[in-house]
Design a protein around this nucleic acid. Structure first.
Lengths: 345, 345
DNA sequence: CTGTTAGCGCTTTCAC
DNA sequence: GTGAAAGCGCTAACAG
């Protein structure tokens, strides 16, 4: 068969150089090239150099798919986030990415809410993509899928405590402590009528407990009330409405998160209740939102970068040893005091 | 060799069923299974059924890596975002993901700012992961890398106009129109001293042009000034400071984006300038931020979901035909009027 | 240290 | 219709 130019409008994309081409070019065998590629020791300095320069000359780039097939791993991990629109996860993701990058693992990010909308099973899709592990970021509604996944691949939770399985590691901030710190701050300012807007799941229960325990530890004479508000601005807005439209409204509110806290702020605005004059507010997560000047929310910094980084480390460890005993990391949170808290009038 | 149980703490993870197992189980050849897998026609109904049930029985899941190696494609595309912390891209991403999901392509999301920090080359990393294409979301600083990448794989720009290459498709909103709409709104309200906070790059220039053209088309007697402010809250804050601390400050400002607009809002707060009473403000992108009650920014909705969806379609098309002629999609923007604009005092 | 030889799980000819 | 055989680009034994 002659080597005539095939009629085609596609530029004759020069086939990528393969390990074989490099071997030929350097006058060695494939194996040597493979060894150089993986920085193995058993290669003479001279040939190593020869291979290296052959690689640059041919503009060689290893094919990670082929490698994956050989090593039966993909070099990717699935990162399941419930809803990308609430950006509390941003620095957690950065923590994950930084750690994974260092070992050449690529996170495959999926928004399970979105997947749900288009009717596909997030976890199943990731599994068929051969992800080497799974990071569940924040409360998930794909609980059973996660449990099933944990049977076949390493799974860690970051920023959530559920589902709590013996072979699933957990990296979170200490929600109980965070809520306690926030509440103590309010008590120290002199507030005596406090409210908490509770969020969902175990995290929600822990933050509530932290709130209540701080109050229980305080002098008597502190009133408190808990209202369910969820994770959204909307939820915080509604809950705060219910709290403020009472005979003796609270003088301070600890919200489940920053979004709900913003909702609380708006509810206060609507009623002419001044923040922090008439009402102190504390959020949770210390998102970028909280630090915007115009908002300037006092908020609990849950150290999400560290949580993400530790979650990634847990996963990497578990990738070596699927059934290792469960490890839990609780990051100590820190209160970031800004302009939505002050002493009560 | 005997089949003794090997001492191991790892649960004998039952090897995933392969196409071979399915074939054996169904009593057919690999080829038939492969055909069923890809919904090819030339398989008798009876055997097709047999293969199907063998698959379910064995809980078979195709290995996308192996498939990728065979078809020399990975089924992934790289999505390069400059900075995840400014969430203007969220719905653009949803548009991308929705379209890609439908054809089983997985977006590999990378934050080039973060990559830059850890000293790795975003585009190069993606290429070595064998992505089948590249989506550049928003202004990028990896311009030359993108240009190089465009030589070997399909590239589209979403929400940015640079680098403008003949084989790189573009999906954006019509920035000139968007800025014009916003400016006309201000003019219609009666404002006669307007300012614009300009952002970077071609998008920045277009929005500025839209601003200026709207004013040029208006009755005479409209003063205007442009101040560079960039994309961040910080930048908007500083620029607005400069604008307000003059003898005849503007009564309305069109900011480059919502973040800068929030900065503008804070600068106004600091000076006791009331919004919208003394100063009307318009953002751009209509992010989730803008619609938060407490913020309630008038903003230009750039239809990012549609932009993302169209960008994805462009890329899929180009994956069939790398050198197709350039296509450009300009989404018509829409002004979302909220509480930061009103007639001047 | 080096080269040879088998695969990894799938698609893709090409005969039958 | 169906099956056999030959890869995709790499890693991983195994002899030398």
């Amino acid at each position: 068969m002659s080597h005539d130019e095939v009629a085609s409008d596609v530029a004759a994309a020069p086939r990528r150089a393969t390990i074989r081409d490099v071997a030929a070019h350097a006058g060695v065998s494939k194996s040597v090239v493979s060894r150089v590629l993986r920085d193995e020791p058993n290669v003479s300095a001279e040939r190593r150099e020869r291979v290296r320069s052959a690689m640059t000359e041919l503009n060689y780039r290893p094919n990670s798919i082929a490698r994956g097939l050989s090593e039966s791993r993909s070099g990717t991990v699935g990162v399941v986030i419930n809803d990308l629109r609430n950006p509390w996860y941003v620095s957690l993701l950065e923590g994950l990415a930084t750690t994974f990058d260092a070992v050449d693992v690529a996170p495959l990010l999926v928004d399970s809410r979105l997947d749900h909308q288009v009717g596909r099973n997030t976890v199943e899709t990731l599994l068929s993509r051969q992800v080497d592990g799974l990071v569940v970021v924040g409360t998930t509604d794909a609980r059973v899928d996660v449990e099933r996944a944990a049977e076949s691949i390493p799974v860690v939770l970051a920023g959530t405590l559920e589902p709590d399985l013996p072979t699933v590691d957990i990296a979170v901030d200490d929600d109980h402590l965070g809520a306690r710190l926030a509440t103590e701050h309010l008590l120290a300012l002199g507030h005596r009528r406090l409210a908490h807007i509770q969020g969902p799941g175990m995290v929600g229960r822990l933050r509530r407990k932290g709130f209540e325990d701080a109050i229980a530890a305080a002098d008597a004479g502190v009133e408190h009330v808990v209202e369910f508000g969820g994770t959204t601005e909307e939820g915080g807005y509604a809950a705060t409405g219910r709290l403020l439209d009472t005979a003796a409204p609270p003088t301070a509110i600890l919200a489940f998160n920053d979004m709900a806290c913003l909702g609380a702020m708006s509810a206060a605005d609507d009623r002419g209740v001044s923040v922090p004059g008439d009402l102190s507010l504390i959020g949770y997560d210390d998102t970028r939102l909280a630090s915007l000047r115009h908002i300037s929310l006092t908020s609990v910094d849950n150290g999400n970068f560290a949580v993400g980084a530790q979650g990634a480390k847990f996963l990497l460890r578990r990738m070596d040893r699927l059934t290792a005993p469960q490890q839990i990391y609780r990051h100590p949170p820190r209160l970031a005091v800004r302009r939505t808290t002050s002493a009560p009038r």
